[in-house]
Design a protein around this nucleic acid. Sequence first.
DNA 1: GTAGAACATGACGCTAGTGTCACGGTCAAG
DNA 2: CTTGACCGTGACACTAGCGTCATGTTCTAC
Lengths: 133, 133
Amino acid sequence: MLSIGAVAAAAGVTPRVVRYYEQSGLLASERTAGGQRRYPESAIERVEFIQHLIRAGLTTEVIRDQLSCVNSRVATPDTIEKLRAQREHIARRAAELNSMEQRIADLIDAAHDSISAEDAASAHSHIATRARG
Amino acid sequence: MLSIGAVAAAAGVTPRVVRYYEQSGLLASERTAGGQRRYPESAIERVEFIQHLIRAGLTTEVIRDQLSCVNSRVATPDTIEKLRAQREHIARRAAELNSMEQRIADLIDAAHDSISAEDAASAHSHIATRARG
DNA sequence: GTAGAACATGACGCTAGTGTCACGGTCAAG
DNA sequence: CTTGACCGTGACACTAGCGTCATGTTCTAC
């Protein structure tokens, strides 16, 4: 059994985040006699999964519903419909991000050009240097 | 020149949000003699762009730097490096989203199977019905 | 059994955003 | 020149998803 610090470190978050997830009903924990949280290994992946979903723009409330279905291994048609909606939501976000990436790539190109125009030799070498990093 | 209400409506936000962006230094406006904000058509796209960047996980502070560079049409190597970092950030988010979409798709399939196993005939027809919606 | 790291709980702050209220000024139509 | 919709500033409250601090308890290793 893992401590909250171990789970948090492995998942790349702070203990605060793990407690917040528990408080939000996304994550359960056992307790020691002294009241400290203990988790199975699987909690690490679960925290990472939740993080991804949150970054995808889903709220903890929405995630709670989905995870409870995954936990209980019981899915109603309603749940499936929700999952489907979330999938669309995520797909839209992904499309937005791809478009943003393209726009930023264009900005980089434009900036690159403007620098080349201003100060071709030195700036260009700067860019070349940083482009590898 | 557009009023704040026109820009907000076209960008799918409230005037409050537009003012908030101006207050955050993300958006400039001209003023009428009476002090009301007037915007060029391009402000609509700009507000949408800012919205996308915020949803991509960038802070207003970070966005402000980038946009100021875009505005002034002057880019330092440092700015380019930041843009590049942001692009990577966004690309990572996009990759996460794609992975999430796949996982949710798997959940949908799994849920579909579990329902089929539980109550093949009726539940299956439910899913088929909703799948078209 | 004691030091000190880690943990528990609770509270407050932050950002991005929404809503709302106040109170007054502006703009465009008539 | 009035009417009414819209806009201005400012303020306050609330949300999610955390960071951070305060204060006290538990765990672990020596």
